[in-house]
Design a protein around this nucleic acid. Structure first.
Lengths: 167, 167
DNA sequence: TGCCATTGTTCAGCATTCTGTCAATCACCC
DNA sequence: GGGTGATTGACAGAATGCTGAACAATGGCA
């Protein structure tokens, strides 16, 4: 396969787009010292205070066995707090600290700028189309990865009603 | 920012698409034990036998300081050979071994299947559009990363004429 | 009550990716 | 020629991301 063909393969282009997206995120959020995954984790914890690690990983499509490291780093910076669950001693429930909530709020404008810079090469109509196609691609291929997104039941302090499995 | 908003942000969707693309690649190419980057490196070395590591990294948008590890792994499996350059004692020139060339040829159909599975959720017209938009996004944002793609001069044994820098 | 499958977390190991830094080497200018 | 700055390839360190396995806690069921 010639190199020029590789350049037009979706696999290569997606890897390249990911690389660019990552670089833009680190650039815009340098003052907050946040990575894309750390940001996503904090958004999810804000919406579901008291979520456990496994359910969090389902919400943001992150590998279960790696999310511990992400949380640990956030915890060491006092952005996230981990509390043992009284119901289930295996679980450690996650909460944003006041500092974490403030940082998340401050970072929002920067994250928005990342999206604008990413899509800058496209026209407004193309941007809508691009996002539409990406959503379809990610949704229909959701089960292809070992860490699919799952809309798990809300068993957190904000909406505790039923206990169901993430699977 | 609500979690539902995050799900439609291009940054998150691109990360998800990358995760899916990676998983499909590993699945299809399991028998060859190849990663996407290893495959891209081998394609580039096949087209430019005798390329050095720095120029290779420019061709496939891979960080210069990390590509050594990738090459080392390929070399340890006897897929790639590294030879010291007579011209420049700093350089180590890269070649595919016979085994590497054979594996690359055998893997091509699997790599093609990855692309098909990736784009399966889209209609033929949408696939063209999606690739077009991705190319534009990656090209116009090329300089955003520290490892931009550069169409470096061919100084290899196949087309040695001039020596220019990769920068 | 006791067994056992399930669940939640963690760890080891491998492979990207980035930022730096370093020594060896080279190209170029005076 | 000789010095200077750039280039090349190595390495360390931090952060993702995956597989697989270990381990403890839980809960259903005989």
């Amino acid at each position: 396969m010639p190199l020029s063909d590789l350049y037009s393969k979706p696999g290569h282009l997606i890897r390249r787009a990911h690389q660019i997206s990552w670089a833009l995120f680190l650039d815009e959020c340098a003052e907050f010292n946040l990575t894309p995954v750390q940001y996503a984790a904090m958004v999810a914890i804000e919406e579901r205070p008291g979520v456990d690690a496994t359910r969090l990983s389902s919400l943001i499509a992150f590998d279960r066995s790696t999310i511990g490291n992400v949380i640990e780093r956030l915890e060491s910076r006092n952005l996230v707090e981990r509390k043992a669950s009284a119901d289930d001693k295996r679980q450690k429930l996650l909460f944003l600290s006041g500092e974490g909530a403030a940082l998340l709020k401050n970072a929002e404008a920067s994250v928005e700028r990342v999206q604008e810079r990413l899509l800058a090469p496209l026209t407004p109509a193309e941007r809508k189309q691009f996002i539409k196609l990406l959503i379809r691609l990610a949704t229909l291929n959701n089960e292809a990865t070992s860490a699919p997104i799952r809309e798990v039941e809300d068993t957190t302090s904000m909406g505790r009603h039923v206990r169901t499995s993430a699977r």
